[in-house]
Nucleic acid binder design. Structure first.
Lengths: 289, 289
DNA sequence: CACTATTTCCTGTATATACAACAGATCCGA
DNA sequence: TCGGATCTGTTGTATATACAGGAAATAGTG
């Protein structure tokens, strides 16, 4: 009963299979889309294949990322995708509707669906590794780990993170550099309950962000920005003088209902800006979906 | 044919009506939900009532805003709302799914749907009026219009806004104050094609944001933040000395494919932070929905 | 040729139905 | 009383179907 979960004969590749059965009045026409190959993926605790609409989303995203679908190109119509993928139009519709809500596609009624133009970097709206950001810009990434230890958490921070005062917390201070120039100082407090092995990582190989993201998906993020003249020890590490302002990005992340990390990122004002582009949703004072 | 568009007998109020007809094989059971009263609303060029799933969203949002539904409260189940509102479950499902994607509701499979806790201010992710922000905090808003005129647009800005160099552009500089203390300096360039009457507005009565939002919905926003020591004329207007850093928020907005405004907002570093909270969507390096 | 009406293709919305997955309550027997 | 099976209510996904409405191509007409 239920779904027929065929396994791909071609496990190394992403593939959609369809197998439509005839239907009677109380039996569905059954269709199976192959699940994405999950071996080696983080978050593999999720059992079973992704739901079909998610598979359709992944299918389209992968075609965009592979370069097969370029910016501004028209993609197949919903009905064409129904034929190609062997799913119903409502399923395709949900996938494409969500993707266009996420800014990946644009739709025009009566005309078609188009690949949206690439949006610029949006460090304000994302959580991504500074290393990959530098690499994508063609820079040379390096880092300097100035601190990595267990501490007793101070009461104010404990309150904010929802843990016991003076219990253990992990603290790291890392200076990230592009071509040897300090670009960011990352001052992180990590909840041991979420990342018990944080101190054991080789953070020069895998960045804290990559490591933390690999443990569990972040369920919520809060970003607050501020302009300050930082303390002298920060000025020294970033090689800036006392007249140069700093942009500080405070980030707090949650995994489920627990606070996972609370960090501050200091950017030398003269060397960095942070941005993001988004589409406001449409009620009252306009907000991100 | 098609929908029966009943008018509300109670036009001053938001109301859901249901009128279910019997169905035959090729005729729908018809249901009508009253459209939101549109008289006096901006964007009234949209003809016809909102689609039903949007009406359901508005219905729930209005109940949250009115205080009837408080934070953490469980709301009606989908099937209950189907009965109450006279729409199908898929329609209710879409409405609630989108609301939970927007962070207004939380859903737990097998348990129910709950009103999400109020998220803090998110000036990073929204476009809202500084006046209403100050009023909500209980402050006393006032402003000082330092400039409001038509100028010839410089080539670099013209390029960025996609208009002819040295053509006309509107330029305003306004200092916003809370209890007489300067909180923000707004330096705005407005595309005359979008807001031809910008210069005629009484911007001390209606804030530029409110006015611009009333003209047309913003289709896209870009925010970039930066820390600077501002020019002396800005320091003077904000009453800060030359050692105090400033947070600058650069905002660019689009209406359709045209750039509508390009603005810079200066916040005294010691008096303001800007923040936003969001839920990352779940692909690759995590981004806003 | 120019202009209009029709057709066709596309997305947008709405519904009814069916089943899956999950959580909590309830029942029941050892 | 305990522990498991069963039931019930809830959300999550998938499908078939139908119609509305926009845009562009096409046919038809003067």
């Amino acid at each position: 009963m239920g779904f027929c979960r065929a396994l791909s004969p071609n496990p190394g590749r992403w593939e959609l299979l369809s197998a439509v059965f005839h239907r009677t009045d109380d039996f569905y026409g059954e269709v199976e889309i192959m699940a994405k190959k999950t071996a080696g993926l983080a978050g593999a605790d999720k059992i079973g294949p992704l739901p079909r609409y998610r598979q359709v989303k992944e299918y389209i995203l992968s075609r965009i990322e592979s370069g097969e679908l370029r910016t501004e190109m028209k993609i197949e119509s919903e009905n064409r995708l129904v034929e190609l993928l062997g799913v119903s139009r409502m399923t395709v519709n949900r996938a494409i509707r969500e993707l266009s809500g996420e800014g990946k596609l644009n739709r025009i009624q009566g005309v078609g669906t188009f690949v949206a133009s690439q949006k610029p970097q949006s460090a304000l709206l994302e959580v991504r590794s500074i290393a990959s950001e530098i690499n994508e810009r063609g820079g040379v990434y390096s880092c300097d780990i100035r601190l990595l230890e267990e501490e007793k958490v101070k009461p104010s921070l404990a309150l904010s993170m929802g843990i016991q005062p003076y219990s253990a917390i992990y603290h790291s201070i890392i200076v990230h550099m592009d071509n040897g120039v300090a670009i960011q100082l990352a001052d992180r407090f990590v909840n041991p309950a979420i990342a018990p092995d944080y101190l054991l990582q080789d953070l020069s190989k895998i960045s804290p962000n990559e490591y933390l993201l690999s443990l569990a998906p972040i369920s919520e993020v809060e970003h607050v920005v501020e302009a300050v003249i930082p303390d002298s020890w920060i000025r020294k590490l970033l090689h800036i003088n006392e007249a140069e302002p700093c942009l500080v990005l405070h980030r707090k992340t949650w995994v489920g209902c627990e606070v996972a990390t609370e960090s501050s990122f200091y950017y030398p004002g003269s060397r960095y800006t942070i941005g993001g582009r988004f589409t406001p949703s449409n009620r009252g004072s306009i907000q991100v979906t």
